[in-house]
Design a protein around this nucleic acid. Structure first.
Lengths: 243, 243
DNA sequence: CGTAAGTTTGAAACTAATCAACTGTTGTGG
DNA sequence: CCACAACAGTTGATTAGTTTCAAACTTACG
């Protein structure tokens, strides 16, 4: 341990902060707003957790005892109707916080699409910290507002857009989020299945597939391996998405 | 002034609180959590405002300078697509707060359906008060969480439910909210037009009308005057709504 | 009372869903 | 390493539910 370059007093004072320093999601997560001391408190009460692809983070009806910050991988949120119909509410990526809308009990399912790493916070401890940290409160409220605006846009999509407009919106949005996470522009990875996409867009897998084919035929996109897509005419897709 | 029954020192100390004391929405609004001193600060920076039916509270793109607390009447929130397609995001009643999702600019339209009374707060002043009032912050975050859960339920409706399930969900929900506001149970007033309902449910007015007729034929509802409906079999409607 | 707006009803058209078959991909065990 | 199974995705034909178009009807209001 003595040959580690880190300053000794730092190691002594807050050993628990160390994992956060190496965290790839640090700069885009809620914790970015926390001063040193508060970050340490947060790190003290959290557990780093890994989920295999397909694993459930929590289910509808589970006690809402845990909140998550996604540090790697992709999570889908969805609701199930009693007869099995499914609505995917959203996809979470590195830096996304899962817990703003959590009450006493969870009201939806959270499932890992890829292998996922996440920081898990007990709700009570998190809300205690919240009470002493106006920065975190502000960040959380701001994220809640963002989520609400996204939800409102999704209502327009689900209520009023055609199948092709829905897909275009989805692709442009995904490309945007990937770009912001530092990926190659114009490339969409699509780690989720067609079924997930369909349930997100309020369509069937067949309709999604046909819309992709239509876009490919029109020269708007090109299929790549592993389900990824190249957006050849992002401006056209963006126009389709908004109108 | 001397013949008013109110204690003199109260009149002297916080004259601005007086209007809130008479407010019908006091017990169900965000301000209910505020201690006396903070309520006075809020009242000091607010303006009571009235809107005629059809009037616009704010529009998409307007600077988000003002937040509202609805004290009477009904407001609809909606988004417009460039070609005129419309999605109604929600309806607001007495006690509902309009501003959680407001950023620098508004991203939707807010329009009075009936004559509306509202408290209007400048955003800056409101956020200043927020900084000193953890109770208000908590209330606001809690409302944001509620709104998000409602939005998620609406995504299920728009993405996966049939026309009749959508209408049933809407009617049950409206009846619930009216009941909570102290109205006659089993009665839905429906102050909004069929067009508003259709745009809220992602349907056309014709489909809404047909669904109402189907429910009437089945004996689930009865049409009353002024567009109001009696829910004759609320349990059946509730089952239709959830499934 | 007459007009305009809102609502209901009917018929035809259309989008997306369903049903079905086929193709491609991934992962596993012989 | 290949064969095979299981799963994911595409394509085609048909159907169903909702929209669109059109007209009649009702309600609210000056």
């Amino acid at each position: 341990m003595s040959d580690i370059a880190a300053p000794v007093e730092r190691v002594l004072d807050d050993p628990c902060v160390e994992p956060c320093d190496a965290c790839a999601a640090r700069g885009v997560s809620i914790c970015r707003v926390l001063p040193h001391r508060q970050l340490r408190r947060l790190a003290d009460c959290m557990v780093e957790q890994e989920f295999a692809a397909g694993a459930t983070l929590f289910g509808d009806g589970d006690p809402g005892g845990a909140l998550f910050n996604i540090t790697d991988g992709v999570v889908k949120l969805f609701k199930l109707m009693p007869d099995g119909r499914r609505q995917v509410i959203g996809f979470l990526f590195r830096g996304d916080f899962l817990g703003v809308s959590v009450g006493d009990h969870h009201t939806l399912w959270a499932e890992a699409i890829t292998p996922v790493r996440a920081c898990r916070f007990p709700r009570a401890a998190f809300y205690n910290l919240l009470r002493d940290s106006p920065e975190l409160y502000e960040e959380l409220l701001s994220r809640a507002a963002d989520e609400l605006r996204v939800a409102q846009a999704q209502m327009v999509l689900l209520g009023r857009k055609t199948a092709q407009e829905r897909l275009a919106t989805f692709l442009v949005d995904m490309a945007d989020r990937e770009r912001r996470r530092g990926a190659v522009p114009g490339l969409v990875t699509l780690p989720m299945t067609r079924s997930d996409i369909a349930d997100y867009l309020g369509l069937t897998i067949e309709t999604v597939s046909r819309a992709v084919t239509a876009f490919e035929t029109a020269g708007f996109v090109r299929r790549l391996d592993r389900g990824a897509l190249a957006l050849l005419q992002p401006d056209v897709l963006a126009r389709l998405a908004r109108i």
